[in-house]
Design a protein around this nucleic acid. Structure first.
Lengths: 358, 358
DNA sequence: TCCAGGTGTTGGAACGATCAAGGCTGGACG
DNA sequence: CGTCCAGCCTTGATCGTTCCAACACCTGGA
């Protein structure tokens, strides 16, 4: 008892705010360290009255387990690594923002925190360097991998090193990958967008999409294609594949308007859709009234631009929830790998859809 | 030697990928653990040949110090907590995205990682609960506080608990706060925007800003006011204070156009500026050609909307760099608190500025 | 030859938690 | 009455690193 308070005193002298430890709680409650540990982690192992006593001591001291000590002993950090990609200035996409937010919230509820890192590709030349460092220093328990369509081989790299991870985005480059993943059926999204325009009476609906080397772009394009074919509508001369930039969308639309007389545009991204709207504005045409436009991502731009850009909205909040669910399975003992999840997007209808053409 | 390899074997049996430890490196290099530790943390303590030998062993085994063990011993995690605020749907602001990205990059170079958490205010009712948990479990070394204009008392709360933190945003509510902070001189930004319009020949320049209880809004408004006064221009009847929403900006602009015949608008946010552009579109007016509009934040919307929204751009990348710099001072021993930093925004000139009116 | 003084290296203890195994109680059962 | 067992709690060891104090080695001067 005496020795104890001496220890306290010396500790208090060195550290202004010294967090209470398991031992402090144990002493106050008159039990052993392990019992306090059990009270925190396996409360049902204790007798009710003991638990209450320990609990009260915990509250009284404001005890919280020391993260570092727990991490060391349990060989886990309860941290999840997420690599964020560079901000794309001049585009309309803000997909990550919503996803990250929902991810932080959901994983917090599951007892995990999200740790961010960047690719540093411009520094080291290796886009996977960030993963390597966190993995080898055992800083995170698992990763969440995005941007799988870039074909950087993140997934196979991580699997080789037996690092647990969940992908947001299907394994485009590896058909027999066995890791858990969650993705959004963007072909269904494009199909939804196209059908919406067909329902409104459009028959000449153009597609402004990404270049052929973008798997994601081809996937979205296939949704437009199947909706058009399903309705028996022509598609020849109505598709364009360009860079994902406002200017590209604009010039693609100009060409299309001159050569194919479309009455509506479906775009692979809001960025391209905004480009189409620029082209219309330059001709004195009003998006919606004269020609319909639908975008993809439901970005802030789509939400705020006049007169409101109809856009495919990805269920990113739901995606984050599914990712965390898969992660929990992966990190439980024994690890449980559930089936992969494919979510369906919705359509946010706004002014650029225009009135019905009947 | 024999015992060592037995240990290795049993370890390998339990953990598929077992990271090498300090002891492993020490044995391979034929030195003690402490020497390896020194090689990593204080290389200049070793003789050149010893260092080389240890370094080679480190490379050979691919050794990285175990984070948890190091954290436990040094009582620091090299993690920085950042609370992210809820995503604002339907607005144009995306300030955080750029700031967070730059922060992750800069702090990474300084050896720190960023850990995200949410306020959970809707769950616990206490916006500071997230801070408390991370602080008491010693999960982070420091915090970066944003949204200081909300008046939640984050700063004073953290100071009371002696938690190291740097604020992005000046201490609006506490004039004699002593913590380090970095902020952007948004009054100067609004002044810059207004001067730009004055230079173009405008004399009746309206202000669409936030409600009076927003300190940030009043600050920005003061920039407009001083530019107008400086040029000897009238301001009566030309200022409006509304909610930060597209619809509010739109109706405020309608009223203003009817009653005060302005030829230009300066807005407290891109969201409001977009609202003004809606009002113009509804009257068949073209932003830029007919009436000039300037926004604030240089959001993706400003960058992509037709014909390009002139907007005040905050130097968020620079802000993040300054924040990390302050943080490094704060976490060094002894802590060094430098002077607070105020940065000046720039103006991104686009189509809505319109031609010169001379 | 011996010692002072610096440089380079070492072994033991500590950080604060959990794991694994063992001890103590009281009641059930042969 | 002795043994066993289940329930509850305690003890000692351990995770991998860094801190601390001490030790071996070398050089130069007395």
């Amino acid at each position: 008892m005496l020795e104890r308070s001496r220890l306290d005193a010396s500790r208090r002298a060195r550290f202004a705010v010294s967090a209470p430890t398991l031992a402090d709680v144990a002493e106050l409650a008159g039990v052993s360290r392990q019992t306090v540990s059990n009270a925190v982690n396996n409360p049902d192992l204790l007798r009710a009255d003991t638990l209450a006593r320990v609990q009260q001591a915990i509250d009284q001291l404001g005890y919280k387990p020391n993260r570092a000590a727990r991490n060391l002993r349990t060989r886990s950090s309860h941290l999840i690594g997420l690599r964020i990609s560079p901000v794309q200035e001049g585009t309309a996409s803000a997909v990550m923002d919503r996803f990250v937010h929902s991810l932080v919230e959901t994983s917090g509820e599951a007892g995990y925190h999200v740790l961010l890192f960047t690719s540093d590709a411009q520094v080291t030349g290796d886009p996977l360097a960030g993963y390597d460092e966190l993995l080898r220093s055992t800083a995170v328990d698992a990763f969440i991998v995005t941007d799988t369509y870039l074909g950087e081989g993140q997934a196979s790299w991580l699997r080789e090193r037996r690092a647990p991870f969940v992908a947001f985005g299907r394994p485009w480059d590896d058909a027999n990958a066995r890791h858990p993943w969650v993705d959004i059926d963007c072909a269904a999204g494009a199909e939804l967008a196209t059908r919406h325009l067909i329902d409104k009476g459009h028959t000449r609906i153009a597609w402004i999409g990404w270049k052929k080397d973008s798997v994601l772009g081809e996937e979205r394009r296939s949704g437009w294609l199947s909706a058009m074919h399903g309705a028996g509508l022509p598609t020849t001369g109505l598709a364009s594949r360009v860079e994902d930039a406002v200017g590209s969308g604009r010039s693609a639309a100009q060409v299309m308007l001159d050569e194919a007389t479309p009455t509506a545009f479906v775009c692979a991204s809001d960025t391209l859709a905004i480009g189409v709207m620029h082209a219309l504005a330059e001709r004195g045409l009003q998006a919606g009234d004269d020609i319909a436009v639908v975008g993809f991502d439901d970005s802030q731009v789509a939400q705020t631009v006049w007169p409101g850009l109809t856009s495919v909205r990805q269920p990113l909040e739901q995606a984050a929830i599914e990712v965390v669910k898969a992660l929990e399975g992966l990190l439980s003992t024994p690890p449980q790998v559930g089936p992969s999840v494919m979510l369906t997007p919705t359509l946010e209808i706004r002014g650029t859809s225009g009135p019905d053409r009947s």
